[in-house]
Amino acid sequence: MSKQLHGGPIAHAEAIKEATRRLRHDPVRHSVGVLVMALMLALPGVAWVALRGLDVMLPVEITTPGLSVFVRQDISESDLTALADNLLMRDEVLTVEVVGRNQGLEALSQLAGLGDLVGAFESNPLPDVVRLAIDALPQSEAMQALSLALEGDPRVDFVRIDQGLSNEMRNALVLGQRLVLVLAFMVLAAIVLVVTGATRIEVTRARAELALVDLVGGTQRYARRPFVYMGLIQGAAGGVLAAGFVWFGAILVAAPLSRLITLYGESEAWVGATPLDLLLPVLAGTLLGALGARIAARVPSVAWT
């Protein structure tokens, strides 16, 4: 027994060699399996990267529903401050922000393509705006009542109910991210099942050989190891391919997303697929491939007939 090795790197190297031999034995079937895994892994990956792009796109200033109170141009600064202070004292008002007319013009000029237009004005045409964040839904009675009340105020020119579009979109985005996570979980579970099924077929095909291995004193670990490596190799290959799909998918959505981001006036750059986005499918594929194969590669003792 002194010349026998029961584990260690050589045993694993032998198992990897045996796994690759089995993979080469039916390359088309195994390649299709890898491709299926890659597509499954890439799906949530691309969706996640695209959603992150949308996240960047959304304006951060308007985060809750509220009112934009456009003040008359002839109102003095002290009246404006008094109006803002009065509004802040109301229970339903969460925050009050005064956006001065110059500040508004500056923001307008920074929007893509509007700089020249703004420069053409002889004087600032914008009013001061008091932006209120309200603890109520846009359609609620409280919001409507406050809007009507403010419209009756002589200092106010008109009132606009902000639908909290950004907030709603952000909620939709969070929902989307959750859905992607659910999808990812289902896909990962499906990958384990796919690998488990494929490995079980492989084990069944090798039944005669495994019976011999069992009979000549091969351990379960020895018999199982090549199948686990098969799953691991296929999972890793699927993961690498999936990373390629994610990278390619990110390139495809980069241009339209960048245009959208610019239209919304956001300056934060969308970085596309990050190294982590590319690493995750590889890690997930490798681990899940090995896990699925490990589950399937329970090699039964087979009696000789």
Binding site: H6, H25, L212, G217
Partner: peptide, 20 residues
Amino acid sequence: LPDRSVFDNVALPLRAAGFD
């Protein structure tokens, strides 16, 4: 094993037992 050489067939018990 039909897809293994005579050598590999005979070596099977040694490999299974973890021989060097």
